[in-house]
Design a protein around this nucleic acid. Structure first.
Lengths: 123, 123, 123, 123
DNA sequence: GTGGTCTAGACCACA
DNA sequence: GTGGTCTAGACCACA
């Protein structure tokens, strides 16, 4: 469900939080849906539970998740079922900007980049 | 020439190193080309000189840059003038993978993503 | 364990790195062995933590040490338990060359030098 | 006459100064003897003249060398023709200490080290 | 507790 | 002018 890369330079808790935000915006995590427990995720990704906790706490503070005493955290009900395409595309802008910056610095043109995206998409 | 984002979570010196690597692979920084001085870059990006220095030192250790005592650092001559398209595309894979992961979590389809890439590319 | 001389002209972080390399080659620091913490070493030698850190980072880049997030750095497991005598003697060649150059410039002969080495060795 | 190693980490001007000190102590540079010109040495070792100048200025300040307007610098006459063996051995102590520290860290014993010194001495 | 990143600023070696 | 080293000290990520 999540892909965490400890070598990417981006803090793990931020990677996780960002991915949960996207799954909520995309509707794959609907309001009320339960998240994996801290321990479960920590085990699965060989990461310290506190790191997972930190991501959850961050999202709770943002109002994306809700803490339920004794039960798993859930997606806040005020999250829309699925965000409008517009908003979801907006959440993709950073990734697109990164890609374009990298491509231009590598002197690759639009067609080459799009071909690569299509190829990787199919895999 | 470089875009440094202090909020991205990726250390600034790593962002800079990566971008220089790409400009060298892309041929925009040819072998022998001088890099901006540490102080110049530091001023321009409102960043501490040591942070720039760290990126340069990293690339020197990798053999991408060459130190010239008392003179600006230059691109190593063993760097090919421009890497083969294949290699340059390979250097783009991480960015593409990030984009696709994000898009899928946001439940966006291929066409929407490619349309966004094309739009942002033109800006 | 380490002798750092801030007046020698050789950067402190390089002195430290070199000594760790030797202790690893000599087997006194076996694969998996934990190194003193950055803060501990910094305190002990009245040196800034970043200086120690720089030595550790250098050795990590060389593959001699391994970083363990949240835990002390350790000697890389790919380091042989102890290098062959041949290799260890090779690592001593620079020191020997320095000594011989100095001795010859001082017009000291081999016997005098060896006598001095033996004397100092016993101390 | 001099061996300057830009990679050793020790500033070049300090390497040069140290070697001149030794040649004077050893008697190979007798009082009144002329030193190579700054330009000559700079050319020979592919080093900036200011670097050589700095070494000469340092030794002048120490009283080892004397500046002669329009003529080459010379060894000060107050330098003894050759220092006593005792003093010369004292000037070798740092090198010996370095060697012994390195050898011990490499877990080499006295015999191995002395054999290496004898071998290198003959070369 | 561990190491990593960054700043502000001093001073050094070299061209 | 160039880059390198070091300090003192803040704050972060992770265990």
């Amino acid at each position: 469900m999540f892909i965490l890369n400890p070598l990417s330079g981006i803090p793990i808790y931020r990677q996780l939080a960002e991915q949960i935000r996207r799954l909520v915006a995309g509707g794959q995590l609907a309001p009320g849906a339960a998240l994996p427990s801290v321990r479960e995720l920590a085990l699965e990704h060989a990461v310290n539970p506190m790191t997972i906790s930190k991501a959850y706490a961050l999202l709770e503070a943002e109002g994306v998740l809700v803490r339920n005493r004794g039960k798993p955290m859930t997606v806040a009900s005020r999250s829309a079922t699925q965000a409008a395409p517009r908003e979801r595309l907006a959440q993709l802008e950073d990734e697109v900007a990164n890609l374009i910056l990298a491509a231009r610095q590598l002197e690759l043109d639009r067609e080459q980049v799009i071909a690569l995206v299509e190829e990787k998409w199919s895999e």
